[in-house]
Design a protein around this nucleic acid. Structure first.
Lengths: 315, 315
DNA sequence: AATCGCGGTGTTATCGGTAACAGAATGAAT
DNA sequence: ATTCATTCTGTTACCGATAACACCGCGATT
């Protein structure tokens, strides 16, 4: 592998000049820069991350802290991971995964945290490196998330537009900002249209939403749409409507949320609000690296729109 | 952060002795070792991975190459990843993810490759670092996998034991060793019991297995069990049996394979062959690190047993 | 008693980068 | 012409670890 030194010799300059071309190009004349770029190209120079890390007193490592239990977890993490990993790669950064099983928080330049709940606040605050959350929060920590409120508002509008008379919201029974935002998006639009919100919150498992539908089937006349805060809940609803031989999407509509994997497993395919998971992962990575380079300066929030992805569960 | 030097001073020895205690403890007297361990403990010494990497001309990075397309991918990758990551962590190694979108194969000490197909052989062989596959292969590359043949044999035995008369094998239509092994496990046991194997291979998507059942419903009398090479296929089968108001598990049984996530999504929960994904991930990590330390020496294969996890789709 | 061998420890140079400082060249100001 | 400021480039030391070598003291060998 070619080193800085090799490039320097080839370009007839000192190592330092090459280093400057890479890190502070404005301090080098255009003439030399050209020579150096040329030499780098010819030698196919790739910086040595370890050396860079050592010299900068960095680790070139970002740790991803996953606070949820894996098995209760939605399958979107792989997309998040690839988004993060690919972005980090560009800056010669590595990713390290931390899960509940592996709490040992070694050294890193920064953290990305996901699956956070209120009770994890102390843990997060104890991290002594730049940190970015995946998932909205009201603790004032920089985050990346879908625009949950807007997302559900959009879906509610769509359901109304499609002529479903009754629109039932099935939320996730946790007291977290994302859940409140989704509910709020629904409520706001319902109120705007002079319709009565109808909200139930359940644990996020398909068997609970199925059981809920079963036990309350009489409450749901034809022309009802179930707006679910997750595809998982949506799956259970579909399953149980089918048990009652309900007609989807004619008499009953279902809209889920997340748009990763599960919506395609459903039959008919679930209409869902698809999140841009990979892009959000990349955004997390960019944000945490920026924060690292700016000595931990706050970066604010970044919200991504969801896409209403039509399946066979809505008219 | 405490360094080697700090530890050395505290223990009144040279850096080199401390380094030896870590890497070649047999070269140091017990007396000094004690002193050094003591000092390390007191200072909470953690080796600096970057410095180590630089001195050893290593990267302390293992790359994970995922050759499958993410969206067609089973959701078990997260478990694999955590298994790998946690194990690598123990040796101050980082993980880097490579996907189709990010083919740029930078520097690393070794590779773990998964989702490999025959046509990827050239790519694998071109990797110039110790490589381990997740997934059996007959190209002579070291691998870790479930014991696919034994797994299906076990399931077939179980189905017979439970008194299902007809046992239909629904495989994945790819010409890969893992698929052949699974089929072979089924065939062997069927033959041993003097039963006629009955095999169909489909693309690995629930809609195809559902369609298959629909189109051939007449071929499947009561008391039939469908042994599926994946939970995905199993899901489709269940769905379609329910469409025909078939009684699961009374008249029809279904067994899937993989045991990650999907089996729990199914209703009733799918009886499946659960793979020890996390453990296999750790095994991949150990194997590739061993290979790195032994200059690429072949490590052979490592097979893991699956666990027959009973759900509601078998008697 | 002088020499040899050897286990155990310290010294030096090195891995590939970077910051801080030193020094050379240029043009402007006196 | 001399001085000074400015811009650019090179030199040096260092980040934290390790391999290779040098060295020291000891018992065994002659």
């Amino acid at each position: 592998m070619a080193t800085l030194n090799d490039v320097a010799k080839k370009a007839n300059v000192s190592k330092m000049t090459v280093s400057r071309v890479i890190n502070h190009p404005e301090q080098v004349t255009d003439e030399l820069k050209e020579l150096v770029y040329e030499a780098m190209r010819e030698l196919n120079y790739r910086p040595n991350a370890a050396a860079k890390a050592l010299a900068n007193n960095r680790t070139q490592i970002i740790k991803l802290l996953i606070l949820e239990e894996m098995d209760t977890t939605e399958p979107y993490y792989m997309f998040l991971l690839t988004g993060i990993a690919n972005e980090l790669d560009k800056y010669a950064y590595s990713l390290q995964l931390l899960t509940h099983n592996n709490v040992q928080i070694g050294d890193s330049d920064g953290f990305i945290v996901c699956g956070m709940r209120q009770e994890d606040e102390a843990l997060i605050k104890s991290l002594d490196k730049p940190t970015v959350l995946f998932g909205q929060n009201d603790m004032g920590i920089d985050f990346v998330d879908s625009n949950n409120e807007e997302s559900m508002a959009k879906a509610t509008e769509y359901a109304i537009e499609k002529g479903y008379e009754k629109i039932v919201y099935i939320g996730i029974a946790v007291d977290e900002p994302f859940a409140r935002s989704r509910e709020k998006g629904y409520t706001t639009v319902m109120n705007n249209h002079g319709k009565e919100p109808c909200i139930y919150n359940l644990e996020n498992r398909s068997r609970y939403s199925a059981a809920f539908i079963r036990e309350n089937w009489d409450m749901f006349p034809k022309n009802t749409l179930f707006l679910c805060a997750s595809d998982r809940l949506g799956l259970g609803v579909i399953r149980e409507i089918k048990e009652h031989d309900g007609d989807i999407p004619g008499d009953y509509g279902v809209i889920g949320h997340d748009g990763v994997f599960l919506d395609q497993i459903a039959y008919p395919n679930l209409t869902t609000l698809k999140q841009s998971i990979t892009e959000m992962g990349a955004a997390c990575a960019r944000m945490v690296l920026k924060k690292v380079n700016e000595n931990g300066k706050a970066q604010g929030d970044q919200l991504f729109e969801t896409e209403l992805k039509l399946g066979g569960t809505t008219r």
